[in-house]
């Protein structure tokens, strides 16, 4: 049985999307959508109203920080988890200031995804 969370994966790399999807499926996420840049992710968030977005930072067209800002403006209840290979303190600070839920370092491991999804499920249960 699924965990009822809907998730958007936003990354320009098809490899990362594939690996992240596989990890999310192992965490029993059933409703998973993919976006290859920030613009597509923003549209998906409007359309699907997901619980969680996994957002890459460095992307063509619209990068992850800009997309985070727009998502926070339009649907502040969405939990946006930033994922980057460059987990510098500056990136982390900027992301949290803009309202990101969390920040994970790439390559994204199953353990990191499991922890985040577990934390979100727990919070959702407490909110009910």
């Amino acid at each position: 049985m699924g965990n009822n969370l809907s998730v958007v994966i936003c990354d320009d790399s098809v490899l990362i999307r594939k690996k992240l999807r596989s990890n999310l499926e192992k965490c029993k996420c059933e409703e998973i959508y993919e976006a290859e840049n920030g613009n597509v992710a923003i549209d998906l968030v409007k359309e699907k109203n997901p619980d969680v977005v996994f957002m890459d930072i460095v992307m063509p067209d619209k990068d992850g920080m800009e997309a985070l800002q727009e998502i926070m403006d339009s649907s502040p209840e969405t939990k946006v988890v930033m994922a980057s290979s460059a987990g510098t303190k500056e990136h982390l600070k900027k992301a949290l200031e803009k309202g990101a839920y969390d920040f994970i370092q790439k390559p994204v491991t199953l353990e990191a995804v499991t922890n985040i999804i577990g934390k979100i499920i727990k919070e959702c249960e407490q909110d009910v």
Binding site: S13, V58, S85, A86, T88
Partner: peptide, 8 residues
């Protein structure tokens, strides 16, 4: 990208 990220 991963390598450059660690470099950053």
């Amino acid at each position: 990208n991963l390598h450059n990220g660690i470099y950053l």
